[in-house]
Design a binder for these strands. Structure first.
Lengths: 154, 154
DNA sequence: GGACGCGGTTTCATAATGCAACTACACAAC
DNA sequence: GTTGTGTAGTTGCATTATGAAACCGCGTCC
């Protein structure tokens, strides 16, 4: 079967999906943002099989998204915490959340993403041009970036 | 095996993943944003097996992300085009792209997302508070939204 | 009307998933 | 020190999804 890998793909989206594009990885990361750190916490919260969790955690560590921290509370067990690369996934989670809230047939508002300072819901993610104009999907395009330019960064 | 479904999940992120959380769906949607509409176009571009593409396209149509358009050029074949819900996925794609560009070990800049008017690269996605302050992951928190409040929207 | 391209469906081998049972270790109680 | 409990996995097996290739009906082209 040989599940196709996008590790070498040219498209950055495909590359992202190679790291976090399977069923559980993003949910593990979401839980990590919620403060979960221990194997058992993930397992109980997500309800996935332990062998799968083992494989996923190892893959996320290998990808530099999580790292093993030696301890934290007294006990000599280890924990999984987000690296900077892992914390960089936050906008992706927000985008997924907002899409679901906007378009799901029966949206669920069990939780709300609020800003910590004021406790009010955040705005929608904004895509802006270099000069600050607010952009929509149709206002953008993909420009091929020729290899020459890429290397010499001219 | 019975692949677990998140259709009924409370978490909006899990719900999103239920629709677009598998290997190919997001890439199909990406291609749709690039203007591809025909079965054969997707198949050639993605290089996935035709049976898988059939299943994925049907699922995306069932989810209201794509819809079958009767024609477009002369020929009596049908096409797959993005619905409004499908176009709403754009920020997710941008987030994935930017994450890869920022954190990939050897980022690939084969293509650049530019704004159509000026041809310059877009900014990073911005998350803002209600009052316009720029927010980071740590500036936010998930607030449980009690069902009572949910219904009366008080 | 015959060849070809399009849009699939069918078939089959194989890899990923899910479940449950099992192991190894740390820590605590007795 | 040994029994017990919880954590963090590993192993084995049944089930499902995936991928490759062959096949097929239909519309087009010439």
């Amino acid at each position: 079967m040989k599940r196709t890998s996008f590790e070498q793909a040219e498209c950055p989206i495909a590359r992202s999906l190679d790291s976090i594009g399977d069923w559980w990885s993003l949910l593990i990361i979401r839980d990590a943002f919620l403060g979960r750190r221990r194997f058992g916490e993930f397992q109980k919260s997500l309800g996935l099989a332990k062998n799968i969790l083992t494989v996923r955690l190892r893959a996320l560590v290998d990808d530099g998204i999580l790292k093993n921290a030696p301890a934290s509370d007294g006990s000599a067990y280890q924990e999984y915490v987000l690296t900077p690369k892992g914390r960089g996934i936050f906008p992706i989670l927000v985008a997924l959340r907002q899409w679901s809230e906007e378009f799901s047939p029966e949206p669920c508002f069990a939780t709300l993403l609020v800003d910590r300072e004021q406790g009010r819901p955040v705005r929608k993610l904004e895509l802006r041009a270099e000069d600050g104009r607010l952009l929509d999907g149709i206002d953008t395009m993909l420009q091929p970036n020729p290899p020459a330019k890429r290397r010499r960064r001219a």
